[in-house]
């Protein structure tokens, strides 16, 4: 095979040149303590009582202040469910008020500033979109993107979440979930800017 037919993009140049190379150095997330399912349930019951008592802002803040960065997939999925329950309980007319309160919250001893909480909120919105999309494709709705392995889970959530928007007009219960998330997404971007989307991609602390 002559040289011109070699696809140079596929050559492993490090195998040719460098004597030793460390493992691929993806930026790693800082270490966080593991999260027990019991703690998640405690957050859930506190949130539910907040929602029932019409303290929706408090419920949302409670979910965002303690993201399960160190948790396993089960804990993270459970957290997402709590998050979606809280979001679905908020009427769309109340979203603006809640977000503007959240974004102006100053940092305190046991809670980061509102800017950081908005970033966590954005992470959950993308994870929620990815989840809805996966369940939709399991139910038989065609979605080519969701089958791709896209590396970091935040990225795959982002990509598959975005691909869901606009596929198929089949009315289902997931469509309403997605429109809730898209509504929140738009309002978060209005306040926190495109930077909040960028930070979902750069941040290695996944929810």
């Amino acid at each position: 095979m002559s040289y011109q037919y070699v696809n140079h993009r596929l050559i492993d140049v490090d195998a040719i040149q460098e004597r030793q190379r460390k493992e691929a150095e993806e930026p790693t997330a800082p270490e966080y303590p593991p999260v027990a399912l019991r703690d998640v349930e405690a957050v859930r019951s506190a949130c539910l009582s907040d929602v029932q008592g019409d303290r929706k802002y408090a419920a949302l803040e409670r979910v965002l202040v303690t993201p399960p960065y160190g948790g396993d997939d089960a804990a993270k999925d459970r957290y997402l469910e709590i998050f979606l329950e809280v979001l679905n309980s908020v009427k769309s007319a109340e979203v603006d008020q809640i977000l503007s309160t959240l974004s102006q919250k100053p940092a305190s001893q046991d809670s980061p500033s509102g800017v950081e909480l908005m970033d966590v909120l954005m992470k959950y919105i993308y994870k929620g979109m990815g989840r809805l999309n996966n369940s939709a494709s399991n139910a038989g709705v065609a979605s080519p993107v969701s089958t791709h392995a896209t590396g970091a889970s935040t990225m795959s959530g982002l990509v598959s979440g975005m691909s869901t928007f606009g596929i198929g007009n089949r009315p289902s219960k997931d469509d309403s979930g997605m429109s809730v998330l898209l509504g929140w997404h738009e309002k978060v971007v209005n306040i926190a800017g495109h930077a909040s989307i960028i930070r979902v991609m750069t941040d290695r602390r996944t929810v």
Binding site: V115, E116, D119, G193, H194, A195, S196, I198, R199
Partner: peptide, 9 residues
């Protein structure tokens, strides 16, 4: 001191 902005990087 980190200043997180709402802008693009």
């Amino acid at each position: 001191f980190t200043v997180s902005t709402t802008l693009l990087p």
